[in-house]
Nucleic acid binder design. Structure first.
Length: 827
RNA sequence: GCGGGCGUGGCGGAACGGCAGACGCGCUGGACUUAGGAUCCAGUGGGGUUACACCCGUGAAGGUUCAAGUCCUUUCGCCCGCACCA
C-alpha cells in the first residue's frame, strides 16, 4: 500500500482500465428500471471550462448514484458540432477547414472529459456535423415541411452584421446578437421558418406535465410565449374601401378612442397617403423609423413621435371619425400592427395624447370617485364601470370586454382573438457550417423537397470561406446547380443552412439508437428510454434550446415518431461559476482553467470542490483555497485507510448486534451518514451537504482509529470504511476505486450496490434536550430517547437550575417537543 | 415598469417553525519537526467576565406564535429574465 496519494497515477490507471473493459457501456434494454440522465451537450470549442466541469460533475454524481441504486442508467455524451466559431476560424486563419477544426476540438474535449472521469457510454457518442446525423436533421425538416410546419416567407429579420447571418428572435438580446453583442439590424429577406406559434397553446398547457422543472424556467417560457386575449376590431377608412384592423386587450374602452395609430411599415400606409400631397413627408418619417436599430426602436427611453396621415377612420360603435396616424412606437410584428388610442385608460396613449392634443375621454369610472378628463394626471387603467358608452353604460368593465366583443362579432366588425408574443422560429442561416436545408427550387415545379432517398444533402468540402454575408454554398456552383427531383429539369439548391438549435432539438432521441440507419432512431428504443428523467444544464437555455426541444417533441409526438409529450421530466439548472464575484471571462482575466486544476490536484479534487462549494442551482464562487481544502480531504481519506489496509482485509463482515460504547457509536455515525447522503443526493440534489456529511464520517473515523485495537470491533471499522468509500464513489470515482481495490475487492466499486442504512443502528439511547424558560435556552439535559412528554417535564422541573430560575414564578404553560425541548412559560 | 430569485461570522455556505453558524476555508494557540506552506490537537459571531453568569445577533421595521433565519405585512439593497406587446 502506497503511503502517499498519487492522484496522477491513480486517475490515469483507472481511466485506462475503465476504457479497456468498457465499464460504462449501457445495454439497450434491461429488467431494471431505466433512468435517462442527460447533461446538455457542449459546443466543441476545444477547451472545457469550469461551467462544463460543474455541469458534467453534477450529472456524473446523479448517473453513478442511480446506477448504484440498481437502475439501468443511460448517460451519453455528444457534440453540438455545427456553428459559427468553426467557420470563423476558417475565415480568420484560412487553410483550416471547419470540419477538421471541429473534429480536432472534439478529440481534445473528449480527452478532457475522460480525464474528469465522467461515466459516459462513449459507444453512443454523436456529433451533429456527422453526415449520418445531419441526414436525419434534414429528414426531420422534411417531416415538418410536409406537415406545413416549415415555410419560407419574406420578412424583416434580425441581421447580425458581424456574424453575417440572420438570427432568431430568441437569439437577439437587448437588441444585440447573443453571440457577439453586435447591434442587430433589420433586413428584408426570404427565410425559412418553423411554425412554433401553432404550438403556442400546447407549449403553455403542457406545463402542467413539468412538475420537475424549476418554476423560474416555466415562468420565463410563459412570458416568452406571451399569450394575451383580446379582440380584433375593424375600422372603416372614411371615404375609402379599406379597413384597418386593430388588436386590443381592452375592447371595453372602444368608446374612449380619440385617435388611431398604424405602424410606419404598415402595408396600408402607402395606399392611404396616395395623392394626399404629404407623401414625401411621410415616407421620410417611415424611412427614419425603419433605419433605427432594434434597440432604439423598442427602447422606452425614446420619445414617442407620431405623424397624422390626414385621413380618418370610423369607430364602429360610435360612428365617430377619428384621425389616423403613424408613430414610431407601434410595431408591425405584434397584433395587427395597428393600435387604438384611448388616452383616458392607457398610460402610453395618455402621454401621447397630451403631447399632440388629442382629447381624453373617460369611459371607465371607478366606484366612489368621478374621473374628470381635464384633471387627470395619468391614465386610469384599473377596473370600473362603463360610462359614455351608449348601451354598455353601467356594465363592470370586465363584463363589457365580453359584451362589446360579442356585439362587434354579431355586427361582423370584430372578433375574439388570442395573440402571442412568440414569433415563428426563423431557422435559415446564411452560413456554411450547418445542415443544408434540403430544398430544391425549380423554375417549372417551384419549391421541391429533396426526396428522402437522396439524403443527406452533403456539405461540399472545398468551398471558399469569405465573410460575404451570403452562404459560401451560394458561391459554389457544384452545390447550387442540381436537377429537379420532380421533372428532371435544372434546379437550384437552397443555400442556407439550418440554425444549430434545430440540430440540438432532437439529439437526446438519437442517443437511444445512435447507429440507426433506417430512421432517426429506433422507435422501440426511444420509447424505452425517453423521456429524459433528469436533464442538467445552464439556465441560459431556458428559452432557446428548451423551448425548441419541447416544440420538436410535440411535433414528433404528432408524427407518431415518439410517444412522450414532453422531452425532459426533471430539469436542473445549474448556477454559474464565478471568480471574484463575476462570471469567468477572458476579458476580465478571471478564468480558471480546468486543465490546470486537474494537473495540480487531479480530477477527483476538482469534482469534489465544485460539488462542495455551493448547492447546484446557485452561483458558485471559485476559491483556490477551497480547492486546496478538498485536496486535503481526499489525502485525509487516503491516509485514514492506508495504514488499515491489512486490518480491513482480515476484518470479518459479520452482522453486528448488541454493540456497546464506541463501537455502537461508530456504527451509528456510519448509518446516519448513509441516510443523510442518500437523502441529500436523491431528494434535493444537495451535493454540498452530502459531501460535508462524508467529511464528518471521516472525522469520526479518525477518532475511532485512535481507539485501542482491543476495544475496536474490526467489523465495525470495515463497515464504516466501506460505506465511506461507497458514498464517496460518485463524487470521487478514481480514488475510491483505487482504495476499494487496495482493500481487497476484485470488482469495481462503481458496480457495487449503494449502501442502505439500518434504522435500528441510528436509534439513540439518550438525547440532549433543551430546557427553555420563556423561550430562552436556560439549560440542557441528557434524557433517555423517546421519553414521554410527562416524564420529560417531570425531570426538567426537578432540575436544580430550573428550580432556581422558576422559584417564586407562576408556571403558565409548558410546551414539550419529544426528544427536543421543554419550554416553560412563567410569569 | 412587470415577473422571478437572493440578503446569515473574515469568506464559501448549514439549519422538518424548536440549541443559529454543520462542513470547509481563513485565522489564533499548541504538538511533532533541522524546517513547515506537511500532519495532528484545541480554539474561533459580537459584547461581557480571571472564569462563569448574562446580554446582543440572520439587510431594516412591524406582526403571528410558547418559540421566527424560516410564516405574514411593509421597506431597503443586489442579481437574473422580459420590457413601448397595444
Amino acid at each position: 500500500m502506497k503511503v502517499k496519494y498519487d492522484f496522477n497515477e491513480v486517475e490515469k490507471k483507472w481511466q485506462d482500465r475503465w476504457d479497456e473493459i468498457d465499464l460504462y457501456a449501457v445495454p439497450d434494454y434491461s429488467d431494471r428500471p431505466k433512468y435517462y440522465c442527460l447533461e446538455m451537450f457542449p459546443y466543441p470549442s476545444g477547451k472545457l471550462h469550469m461551467g462544463h466541469v460543474r455541469n458534467y460533475s453534477i450529472g456524473d454524481v446523479v448517473a453513478r448514484f442511480k446506477t448504484m441504486q440498481g437502475m439501468h442508467v443511460l448517460h451519453p455524451m455528444g457534440w453540438d458540432a455545427f456553428g459559427l466559431p468553426a467557420e470563423n476560424a476558417a475565415i480568420k486563419h484560412g487553410g483550416i477547414h471547419p470540419a477538421d477544426w471541429t473534429i480536432d476540438n472534439i478529440d481534445k474535449m473528449r480527452d478532457q472529459l475522460k480525464q474528469l472521469g465522467i461515466s459516459y457510454d462513449w459507444n453512443r457518442e454523436l456529433a451533429t456535423c456527422d453526415p449520418e446525423y445531419y441526414r436525419w436533421t434534414q429528414w426531420l425538416f422534411l417531416q415538418l415541411y410536409h406537415r406545413g410546419l416549415a415555410y419560407k416567407r419574406l420578412s424583416a429579420v434580425n441581421w447580425c452584421p458581424d456574424c453575417a447571418t440572420v438570427l432568431a428572435n430568441e437569439q437577439v438580446v437587448n437588441g444585440g446578437c447573443e453571440r457577439c453583442k453586435t447591434t442587430v439590424e433589420k433586413r428584408e429577406l426570404a427565410q425559412w421558418f418553423f411554425k412554433i406559434t401553432s404550438y403556442a397553446d400546447r407549449l403553455l398547457q403542457d406545463m402542467v406535465l413539468m412538475d420537475g422543472w424549476p418554476e423560474k424556467v416555466k415562468i420565463m417560457q410563459e412570458n416568452w410565449i406571451g399569450r394575451s386575449e383580446g379582440a380584433e376590431i375593424d375600422f372603416q377608412i372614411e371615404g375609402a374601401e379599406d379597413i384597418i384592423t386593430v388588436y386590443t386587450t381592452r375592447p371595453d374602452t372602444v368608446f374612449g378612442i380619440t385617435y388611431m395609430v398604424l405602424a410606419p411599415e404598415h402595408p396600408l400606409v402607402e395606399k392611404l397617403i396616395a395623392g394626399s400631397g404629404k407623401e414625401a413627408q411621410i415616407r421620410d418619417f417611415v424611412r427614419k423609423v425603419k433605419s433605427l436599430s432594434e434597440i432604439d426602436r423598442t427602447s422606452t427611453e425614446v420619445e414617442k413621435v407620431g405623424l397624422p396621415l390626414g385621413v380618418n377612420c370610423v369607430n364602429p360603435l360610435t360612428g365617430e371619425k377619428v384621425p389616423v396616424l403613424i408613430a414610431n412606437y407601434v410595431l408591425l410584428e405584434y397584433g395587427t400592427g395597428c393600435v387604438m388610442g384611448v388616452p383616458a385608460h392607457d398610460q402610453r396613449d395618455f402621454e401621447f395624447a397630451r403631447k399632440y392634443n388629442f382629447p381624453v375621454r373617460v369611459v371607465i369610472q371607478p366606484a366612489g370617485v368621478t374621473l374628470e378628463a381635464d384633471e387627470m394626471l395619468s391614465a386610469y387603467e384599473e377596473e370600473g364601470f362603463l360610462v359614455n358608452s351608449g348601451r354598455f353604460n353601467g356594465l363592470p368593465n370586465k363584463e363589457a370586454i365580453k359584451a362589446i366583443t360579442a356585439y362587434l362579432e354579431e355586427k361582423g366588425q370584430g372578433r375574439f382573438r388570442v395573440t402571442y408574443r412568440l414569433r415563428d422560429w426563423l431557422i435559415s442561416r446564411q452560413r456554411y457550417w450547418g445542415a443544408p436545408i434540403p430544398i430544391i427550387y425549380c423554375d417549372v415545379c417551384g419549391v421541391v423537397p429533396v426526396p428522402e432517398k437522396d439524403l443527406p444533402v452533403l456539405l461540399p468540402m472545398n468551398v471558399k470561406f469569405k465573410p460575404t454575408g451570403r452562404s459560401p454554398l451560394a458561391d459554389y456552383p457544384g452545390f447550387v446547380n442540381t436537377t429537379c427531383p420532380k421533372c428532371g429539369g435544372p434546379g437550384k439548391r437552397e443555400t442556407d443552412t439550418m440554425d444549430t438549435f434545430m440540430c440540438s432539438s432532437w439529439y437526446y432521441y438519437r442517443y437511444s439508437s445512435p447507429g440507426e440507419t433506417e430512421g432517426p432512431w429506433d422507435k422501440a428504443k426511444v420509447d424505452y428510454w425517453l423521456p429524459v428523467d433528469q436533464y442538467i444544464g445552464g439556465v441560459e437555455h431556458a428559452i432557446l434550446h428548451l423551448l425548441y426541444s419541447r416544440f420538436f417533441t410535440k411535433v414528433l409526438y404528432d408524427l407518431e415518431l415518439v410517444s412522450n409529450q414532453e422531452p425532459f421530466t426533471n430539469l436542473l439548472t445549474q448556477g454559474m461559476v464565478l471568480k471574484d464575484g463575476a462570471k469567468m471571462s477572458k476579458s476580465k482575466g478571471n478564468v480558471v482553467s480546468p486543465e490546470d486544476i486537474i494537473a495540480r490536484y487531479g480530477a477527483d479534487t476538482a469534482r469534489m470542490f465544485i460539488l462542495f462549494a455551493a448547492p447546484p442551482e446557485r452561483d458558485l464562487e471559485w476559491s483556490d483555497q477551497g480547492v486546496e481544502g478538498c485536496f486535503r480531504f481526499l489525502n485525509r481519506v487516503w491516509r485514514l485507510v492506508a495504514p488499515l489496509v491489512e486490518t480491513l482485509k482480515k476484518a470479518p463482515r459479520k452482522r453486528v448486534a448488541n454493540l456497546v460504547g464506541i463501537n455502537r457509536e461508530m456504527r451509528r455515525v456510519t448509518h446516519k451518514t448513509i441516510k443523510k447522503v442518500t437523502e441529500d443526493i436523491s431528494a434535493r440534489f444537495n451535493f454540498n451537504t452530502a459531501v460535508s456529511a462524508i467529511m464528518e464520517l471521516v472525522n469520526a473515523l479518525y477518532q475511532f482509529k485512535e481507539v485501542p485495537e482491543s476495544d475496536r470491533d474490526p467489523a465495525i471499522l470495515r463497515e464504516a470504511v466501506e460505506s465511506l468509500l461507497l458514498l464517496l464513489a460518485p463524487f470521487a470515482p478514481h480514488i475510491t476505486e483505487e482504495i476499494w481495490e487496495m482493500t481487497g475487492h476484485a470488482d469495481s466499486i462503481h458496480l457495487q450496490a449503494w449502501p442502505v442504512y439500518d434504522p435500528a443502528a441510528i436509534v439513540e439511547d439518550e438525547v440532549t434536550i433543551v430546557v427553555q424558560i420563556n423561550s430562552k435556552v436556560r439549560d440542557r439535559m441528557l434524557v433517555p430517547a423517546g421519553l414521554a412528554a410527562a416524564q420529560m417535564q417531570e425531570r426538567v422541573l426537578k432540575d436544580p437550575k430550573i428550580l432556581k430560575l422558576t422559584a417564586g414564578k407562576k408556571i403558565v404553560k409548558t410546551i414539550t417537543v419529544p426528544d427536543k425541548l421543554v419550554n416553560i412559560v412563567v410569569k
